[in-house]
């Protein structure tokens, strides 16, 4: 079957088996920013944004996003032109191996869209589902606060 949806601001129509997960389809089509981590609902590496809410691409059928709007990390920025959240994560030293970062940054994007100046508790709650085995999270939380400050100061967002 064909699944038609908005992906990073562009209309796309991809082939998918009816029982295929969104993660499979995205990666087959070259969107490798959605990471294949545990594939078992646990790690959050495959996090993408659907209609403004974070979901796990490994636990979402491709057919569920028919007609919806999906954002992967590729929709935020790139190395030459990073999103302020991405820049804040680099500046804070929050990126080590980097595998969990797309999920972390997309969860942060939704958090800051909803709550521009989150306290630590809100940050921890928003990132509960994103596991990182490198950083110990302290610098990640620092990065989210830096990102919030940068966005509040009016850095350009995409």
């Amino acid at each position: 079957m064909k699944v038609t949806f908005m992906l990073n601001g562009r209309a796309v129509s991809y082939d998918a088996r009816p029982d295929e997960m969104l993660l499979e389809v995205l990666r087959r089509e070259g969107w490798l920013g959605a990471r294949r981590g545990c594939e078992d609902n646990n790690c959050g590496a495959c996090t993408v944004i659907v209609d403004g809410k974070t979901v796990l691409a490994c636990a979402t059928f491709a057919a569920q996003v028919e007609g919806r709007s999906v954002t992967t990390i590729e929709g935020l920025g790139d190395p030459a032109n990073p999103h302020p959240i991405q820049r804040a994560f680099v500046d804070a030293g929050a990126v080590q191996c980097g595998f969990c970062m797309p999920g972390m940054i997309l969860s942060t994007k939704v958090l800051l869209d909803e709550t521009p100046t989150p306290n630590l508790e809100a940050i921890q709650d928003a990132l509960d589902g994103n596991l990182c085995r490198c950083t110990g999270y302290v610098k990640v939380y620092d990065a989210v606060q830096r990102a919030a400050a940068a966005l509040a100061a009016g850095e350009e967002t995409t």
Partner: peptide, 9 residues
């Protein structure tokens, strides 16, 4: 319930 990605769905 679980984490935000699950609570969203």
């Amino acid at each position: 319930i679980s984490h935000r990605m699950h609570r969203n769905v």
